[in-house]
Simulated scan of single mutants.
Amino acid sequence: MRAFLALLSGLLFGGGLALSGMMNPSRVRGFLDILGAWDPTLAFVMGSAVLVMAIAWRIRAHMHRPAMAAEFYLPGTRRIDARLVAGAALFGIGWGLAGLCPGPAIGSLANAAMPAATFIAAMLAGMAIFKLVDRKTGQS
């Protein structure tokens, strides 16, 4: 049942990305081009996500445990440190340069296979480098 719900969630997410045009890197670049031909589409997608998440947090407050797990897994820290800021900056730079983030990149494998595959390869390389550096510095 959990695998089916995960698949259903992924299909819903992917369908939303496709319907909203967020798998098109030019839409993302248009949103980031605030001094040029600004495209507010991504703002509406983000706003919708924030609204849905706000409702989900309200519902979660009244639940003792999730429907498909033994407990809720929530972040243990709210600390903003150099590591978090650097990671967010790298993510943002990659997003701005490629016009893709991980979800749309995977969805884009269906219609823009080579650019999406290049992005995913770079993303996986970055994750591997992080794992190596994290293991050597002993942080987690």
Rank of each mutant, 00 (worst) to 15 (best):
M1Y: 08
F4V: 15
A6D: 01
L7Q: 00
L11C: 10
F13R: 08
F13I: 15
G15D: 07
L17Y: 02
L19P: 02
S20A: 15
G21D: 02
G21Y: 01
S26N: 07
R29C: 03
L32A: 13
D33F: 00
G36C: 07
G36A: 14
P40F: 02
P40D: 04
P40S: 01
T41S: 14
A43Y: 06
M46I: 14
G47Q: 03
A49H: 05
A54G: 06
R58S: 13
R58P: 04
R58M: 14
R60N: 07
H62E: 13
R65T: 08
A67G: 01
A67Q: 03
M68E: 04
L74A: 12
T77A: 07
R78Y: 02
A82M: 12
A86V: 14
A88I: 08
G96P: 04
P102N: 04
G103Q: 07
G107S: 04
G107Y: 00
L109P: 04
L109M: 05
P115V: 01
T118F: 11
A121W: 02
A122V: 09
A122Y: 05
L124Y: 01
R135N: 10
K136E: 08
K136N: 08
G138D: 12
G138F: 08
Q139N: 09
Q139K: 11
Q139P: 00
Q139Y: 09
S140T: 04
